[in-house]
Amino acid sequence: MPDTVAEVRLLDSGYSREVRSLLYHAYRHEPTFAYLFDADRPGFDQRVRATVRELVNRHFLEDLPAIGLLIEERLVGVALIAPPQRRLDITESWAWRMRMLLTTGLGCTRRYLDYHAAVLGCLPPGPYHILPLLGVHPEFQGKRLGERLLDALHAWCAEDGGSQGLVLDTGNARYLEFYQRHGYQELGEVALGPIREHVLFHPNPRPEASLAGGG
């Protein structure tokens, strides 16, 4: 089957509603979110939806970059990007924390903040881009769109000479091999109850000059 043709586009806040819907559908069955937001307790879907809404709204309010994949103007894949110098802004916002408390409760908010801090704790010193959220809509998975999205992300981040690469994390074992196959290296592992969250790093290409021999 030929690859599905998708357009890569840098998104602005006008796509906020579509981004929230896509990421909700992408994350509602993820094991990490099932643990963080207590899937066995009533209201889980609402907590996931509220969390995605607050993260996406804050992302665009901070004017942070987002890359989307579109097929015939429908958003089918998206990645939110936190540049090195601004990667902590969202969870340090008291307004964001208060909205999370009101929509997901104290326990889930605390669990999310602990998870976020543990992931950042795996990073060595240095400037990196971080992906807070990324996903392909479930209706469009299995069409190599995840690879298309990663290729676009790697190319975009490589243009920033002040960044060493791209960091993401996953608690879904079936994605781990996929990321490793695309050049990601494991930086560390975070225990989230029964979930093992893997923190992964994709280095930016080294400048051509560094490939030349010295002497």
Rank of each mutant, 00 (worst) to 15 (best):
D45E: 13
D45Y: 10
D45P: 03
Q46M: 04
Q46T: 10
Q46K: 12
R47P: 02
V48R: 03
R49P: 00
T51A: 12
T51D: 10
T51M: 09
T51V: 08
V52K: 00
V52N: 02
V52Y: 01
R53C: 03
R53W: 02
E54Q: 02
L55Q: 10
L55A: 08
V56I: 10
V56C: 05
V56Y: 12
N57E: 14
N57F: 06
N57V: 11
F60A: 12
F60I: 07
F60N: 02
F60Q: 07
L61F: 07
E62A: 15
D63S: 13
D63G: 10
D63F: 05
L64H: 03
L64I: 05
P65M: 06
P65V: 05
A66R: 05
A66H: 07
I67Q: 02
I67F: 07
G68L: 04
L69P: 02
L69N: 07
L69R: 03
L69V: 04
L69Y: 01
L69E: 06
L70F: 10
L70C: 15
L70S: 12
L70H: 15
I71P: 07
E73H: 13
E73V: 03
R74E: 02
L75D: 04
L75S: 10
L75G: 01
L75F: 05
V76M: 13
G77E: 06
G77C: 09
A79V: 04
A79L: 08
A79C: 10
L80G: 06
L80S: 05
L80Q: 04
A82Y: 00
A82G: 00
P83N: 09
P83Y: 11
P83F: 02
P84S: 06
Q85D: 15
Q85A: 14
R86F: 08
R86Q: 11
R86P: 04
L88E: 11
L88P: 09
L88Q: 12
L88W: 02
L88V: 09
D89E: 14
I90W: 08
T91M: 15
T91P: 13
E92H: 13
S93P: 04
S93E: 03
S93N: 11
S93K: 02
W94R: 13
W94Q: 03
W94V: 07
A95V: 14
A95E: 12
A95Y: 14
W96T: 11
R97G: 06
R97E: 11
M98C: 07
M98D: 11
M98E: 14
R99N: 04
R99E: 05
R99K: 04
M100G: 10
M100V: 02
L101V: 06
L101S: 05
L101H: 08
T103L: 06
T103R: 09
T103M: 06
T103K: 13
T104N: 04
G105L: 01
L106M: 12
L106C: 11
L106E: 13
G107S: 13
G107T: 10
G107A: 09
C108S: 12
C108M: 06
T109A: 08
T109F: 03
T109M: 05
R110P: 03
R110S: 11
R111F: 01
R111P: 02
R111V: 02
Y112N: 10
Y112M: 14
L113R: 14
L113P: 08
L113A: 15
D114R: 15
Y115E: 11
Y115A: 05
Y115P: 11
Y115F: 15
H116Y: 12
H116N: 08
